[in-house]
Structure formats: C-alpha cells, structure tokens
Lab assay of single mutants.
Amino acid sequence: MSGNGNAAATAEENSPKMRVIRVGTRKSQLARIQTDSVVATLKASYPGLQFEIIAMSTTGDKILDTALSKIGEKSLFTKELEHALEKNEVDLVVHSLKDLPTVLPPGFTIGAICKRENPHDAVVFHPKFVGKTLETLPEKSVVGTSSLRRAAQLQRKFPHLEFRSIRGNLNTRLRKLDEQQEFSAIILATAGLQRMGWHNRVGQILHPEECMYAVGQGALGVEVRAKDQDILDLVGVLHDPETLLRCIAERAFLRHLEGGCSVPVAVHTAMKDGQLYLTGGVWSLDGSDSIQETMQATIHVPAQHEDGPEDDPQLVGITARNIPRGPQLAAQNLGISLANLLLSKGAKNILDVARQLNDAH
C-alpha cells in the first residue's frame, strides 16, 4: 500500500501541473516587456503551470559599433537563445518575429505568432524639431536608422535628408537623439515604442507609400524545439490566425527572394473581405531603383483552434497545428507568387547589386 502511495506522490510531482516552463529572452527592456506579455497570456491559459524567465545577451546586443547589415552573420539576435533551447536550458524563446530568419536551424520551429501590433515605422524627432515631419525637416538634416530597408525607401522619398546608421537598443538610440546634436530624427518601429509606453515620442507614423515595413514587423514569434510536442501544444494558444497568415505570406515572399538583413526588402499586408493583399518591394541601397507589386488571394481566416493538420510540417519556419492547413498554404503560395513576379521584373539584379555594395563598404 505504502509503495503505491509513493508512486502516486511521484506521479503528482512529475505531472504537468508541477512543471516549471523556462522562457528565454534577450536582456533589453523591450525584450523583457514583450516576454512578460507572452508569459502573462500563458499564465492565464495555464494557471497550474509556473513560468521562469531567463534573460541573456546576444551577438546583436554586444556589437554596437557596426551596422547590422555589415556584421555579416545571420541570427544576430537569436543564436545564443537557440543555443540555450538546444541544450534544454529553456523550453521556449520569445523573439520579435522580424529577427527570426525565414529558414531556422534544424530542430527549431516557430510554435506561435502572437497578435500583431502596429507594424509601421515611426519617426521620433529631436526636441528642437518636435512638430515637424520628415518632409518639413531642414535641408541636409541627419536621420538615424539601423535599417537598409528604411534608408533606401526614405532616401527616395525625401532626397533633402541624409540617413546615417544608429545602433543600440531603444533606450540607447533615444538617448543619442536627445543628448547629442548629430541626429534631427530617428526611425523606429511603432510597436516597440508603444510597448515601452513611449507613445508621446511618436512624431509621425510612416504610411506604406512612404515606407513599407519589415517582414514580420510588429509581431512576436515564440520559438521552440520542433519535436517538443508538449510545448508546441502549450504555445499553440498564442497563435493569432490573421497575423499568422499575413506573416506566412510575408516570410514566403522574403524567403523566395532570398532577402535578408543586408538587402532592402519591404512588405505591406492587409486582410479585407476574405482577401489577403500582399505588397512587396525591393530597392537599391540608395533607393534610386525599385520594383513594387501587389497581389491578392482569397483566404478564409479560420477561428482559433479549428482542428489543424496533425502532421505539422513547417511552413517558412512556422508550425501551427491548430490552424487549418489550406489557408496557410494559400498564404505561402501568395508570397511565392509575388516573389516570382518581382524576380521576373529584375528584382534579383537589384538585390545582387545591393548585396555587393553593402559587402564592399
């Protein structure tokens, strides 16, 4: 009898209710805020589980004197976190989706994509230029951005401005803007500013005609071990179906173009009346040469937790077992079709030249 009692006690200790789920994140304040929001949602869904947040620095956090596009290494903000995932030191990792490459290392998958916040870019102005827009900034004003995508589009749109690289986390960039006289304004992701509670610093939100956004911008991705079915089931509740389908289309477009950090590629997606609209573009580094096109596809946005595919093969690095396969494939095909259209119009040449120029500098 006593033996059975011990077995029952052991089973209770090993039951999922007692389990601590370890969540990996970057150390920056924004990353911690984003991770806290994901953990809060998981806690609400699984009140019996405990969650421990483990923060670590990544290569991208450490190399702050070089433009991201020049470092010449993929997975700048993800490699150390993936290493911890691989060694079973954490069970899942919360990322900004735009930091996750469209091809993940073997053994990993994006197990959830959370509801997207505003994906557009924002302009934050130096205190002396508050009330201005990019259009009304004085001639030769210097605007800071760490992104080739932003610089290429904005140089084309605002030729009277000069664009220079600015690195560091959000706090560091804002301090550089406010305390030094080098920059009249800087460009940042609206979602990051909003998550930090800095709505009052948003001086201008850039519309798609001015600057399309990065693939996955404004959404959070939760990376897990691809074979860890328990954790895949656990994080599945975080999937937002519309965000998922938009981001599958965007990531398929980028992957098929073979774009990345070192080339200016941008997108804009919208879901309306059962249609998914995808606009994508590529630019030369100075913005003088560009190709942009829009395509659409009829896609039914499923309700969360309709029964999805059981075999769960990944699409552009994403596993969404609780979302039907048909809409996911339709979104992926839309991204591939748009990429093929741009490639047929000469996108590869623009991107190759951009890559060579970026590598040469």
Rank of each mutant, 00 (worst) to 15 (best):
Arg195Cys: 04
Cys261Ser: 01
Ile323Phe: 10
Ile323Gln: 15
Gly216Met: 02
Gln181Val: 10
Ala249Thr: 14
Leu161Ser: 06
Gly192Cys: 11
His83Val: 11
Leu30Tyr: 04
His256Gln: 09
Pro313Ile: 15
Thr59Gly: 07
Thr243Ser: 12
Gln217Met: 01
Gly287Ser: 08
Val38Ile: 14
Gly111Thr: 03
Pro127Asn: 00
His207Leu: 11
Arg164Tyr: 07
Lys115Ile: 09
Asp240Lys: 11
His305Gln: 13
Asn358Pro: 15
Lys128Ser: 08
Asp99Cys: 00
Leu188Lys: 01
Thr243Gln: 15
Glu52Cys: 13
Gln229Lys: 08
Leu278Trp: 04
Val23His: 04
Lys62Ile: 15
Ile323Tyr: 10
Leu134Pro: 04
Pro47Ser: 11
Leu42Asp: 02
Leu357Lys: 10
Leu244Phe: 02
Trp283Glu: 01
Asp359Gln: 05
Arg32Phe: 07
Glu310Ile: 03
Glu306Trp: 12
Thr78Lys: 13
Phe51Thr: 13
Thr66Glu: 14
Ile323Asp: 07
Phe253Ile: 13
Pro327Leu: 05
Ser45Glu: 10
Ile231Val: 13
Pro302Arg: 04
Cys114Tyr: 04
Gln356Asn: 15
Met212Asn: 02
Val103Ser: 10
Asn200Tyr: 08
Gly60Asp: 01
Asp233Ile: 09
Val224Leu: 15
Ala112Gly: 08
Val316Lys: 01
Leu30Asn: 00
Gln50Ser: 01
Arg246His: 05
Lys115Val: 09
Ser284Pro: 00
Val39Lys: 07
Leu341Ile: 00
Trp198Leu: 12
Asp91Cys: 05
Arg255Lys: 03
Gln34Leu: 05
Lys132Gly: 13
Lys43Asn: 11
Ile113Asn: 01
Val282Ala: 09
Gln328Gly: 08
Ile350Lys: 00
Phe158Lys: 06
Glu306Lys: 15
Arg26His: 01
Gln229Phe: 13
Leu81Cys: 09
Asp312Ala: 12
Gly48Lys: 14
Ala320Asn: 00
Asp359Gly: 13
Ser57Ala: 06
Asp352Lys: 09
Arg251Tyr: 02
Ala40Gly: 12
Leu244His: 04
Ala40Glu: 11
Asn349Thr: 13
Asp61Pro: 04
Val103Gly: 11
Asp121Ala: 03
Leu174Met: 14
Pro324Phe: 02
Ala185Thr: 14
Pro324Asp: 15
Lys348Asn: 15
Met56Tyr: 03
Gln155Thr: 11
Arg225Gly: 05
Val23Met: 12
Ser45Gly: 07
Cys211Val: 10
Asn118Phe: 10
His268Tyr: 14
Ala347Thr: 15
Thr269Pro: 01
Ile231Arg: 04
Leu276Pro: 02
Thr294Tyr: 00
Ala252Glu: 08
Leu148Gln: 11
Ala320Arg: 03
Glu162Phe: 14
Pro127Leu: 14
Gln181Tyr: 14
Ser146Glu: 03
Gly24His: 02
Glu82Gln: 06
Ile21Arg: 06
Cys261Asp: 05
Gly287Leu: 06
Phe163Cys: 11
Arg156Lys: 12
Val39Arg: 08
Ile336Ser: 15
Arg201Tyr: 15
Arg251Trp: 10
Lys115Leu: 11
Glu117Tyr: 11
Leu238Lys: 02
Glu82Thr: 07
Thr172Phe: 10
Arg325Ile: 15
Glu162His: 05
Thr243Arg: 05
Ser288Cys: 11
Glu310Ser: 05
Asn171Asp: 14
Arg175Gln: 13
Gly144Thr: 09
Glu52Arg: 13
Met295Asn: 01
Cys247Trp: 04
Leu206His: 00
Ala31Met: 00
Leu276Lys: 01
Gln153Lys: 04
Ser28Arg: 01
His126Tyr: 08
Ile21Ala: 13
Asp311Lys: 02
Ser69Tyr: 10
Lys115Thr: 12
Glu80Gly: 08
Val237Glu: 03
Glu52Thr: 11
Ala226Gly: 11
Asp99Lys: 03
Glu306Gly: 06
Leu232Ala: 07
Ala249Gln: 01
Thr35Val: 09
Glu73Leu: 07
Ser290Gln: 00
Leu234His: 07
Leu276Gln: 04
Gln356Lys: 11
Leu30Val: 08
Gly218Leu: 03
Leu276Ala: 04
Ala67Val: 10
Leu315Asp: 04
Thr25Met: 07
Ala122Asp: 06
Lys43Gly: 09
Leu81Thr: 10
Lys345Val: 05
Ser57Glu: 05
Lys227Tyr: 15
Gly48Thr: 12
His199Trp: 10
Leu85Cys: 11
Ile350Val: 13
Gly274Val: 12
Ala40Asp: 11
Val235Leu: 10
Glu139Leu: 14
Ile248Lys: 00
Asp230Val: 11
Glu306Phe: 15
Gln304Asn: 15
Met295Phe: 07
Ile33Val: 08
Lys27Trp: 12
Ala270Val: 13
Arg149Glu: 02
Asp240Met: 04
Pro302Ala: 12
Leu161Gln: 12
Ala191His: 01
Lys227Ile: 05
Gln180Pro: 10
Ala360Trp: 01
Thr102Trp: 02
Gly197Pro: 03
Pro138Leu: 10
Glu210Cys: 15
Asp233Ser: 11
Thr41Tyr: 10
Leu278Asp: 00
Phe183Val: 15
Thr25Tyr: 01
Arg32Asn: 13
Tyr277Ser: 10
Ile187Met: 08
Glu306Leu: 14
Leu315Thr: 03
Lys272Trp: 15
Glu179Gln: 12
Val267Leu: 11
Asn333His: 15
Phe51Tyr: 09
Thr109Ala: 06
His95Asp: 04
Val316His: 04
Lys128Gly: 12
Phe163Asp: 03
Phe51Val: 14
Thr133Arg: 14
Arg325Pro: 15
Leu104Pro: 08
Pro208Tyr: 14
Pro119Val: 09
Ser75Lys: 15
Leu85Ala: 06
Lys79Phe: 05
Asp36Cys: 06
Ser146Pro: 03
Val123Gly: 07
Ile54Trp: 04
Gln304Val: 02
Asn333Lys: 14
Val93Arg: 10
Met196Lys: 05
His207Gln: 12
Lys348Trp: 14
Leu97Glu: 04
Ile336Gly: 03
Val130Phe: 08
Lys62Ser: 13
Ile54Arg: 09
Leu30Met: 07
Arg26Gln: 00
Leu220Met: 12
Asp121Trp: 02
Asp233Pro: 06
Gly218Met: 00
Lys62Trp: 07
Ala191Asp: 05
Asn171Met: 11
Pro119Ile: 02
Phe125Lys: 02
Arg195Glu: 03
Gly197Arg: 09
Thr58Asp: 04
Asn358Met: 15
Thr319Lys: 04
Leu234Tyr: 01
Lys27Ala: 13
Asp228Trp: 00
Gly48Met: 06
Ser262Trp: 00
Val90Asp: 02
His239Gly: 02
Gly317Thr: 07
Leu100Cys: 15
Pro208His: 11
Ile291Gly: 07
Leu338Trp: 01
Leu104Cys: 09
Leu357Val: 10
Pro241Gln: 15
Ala151Ile: 05
Glu242Asp: 12
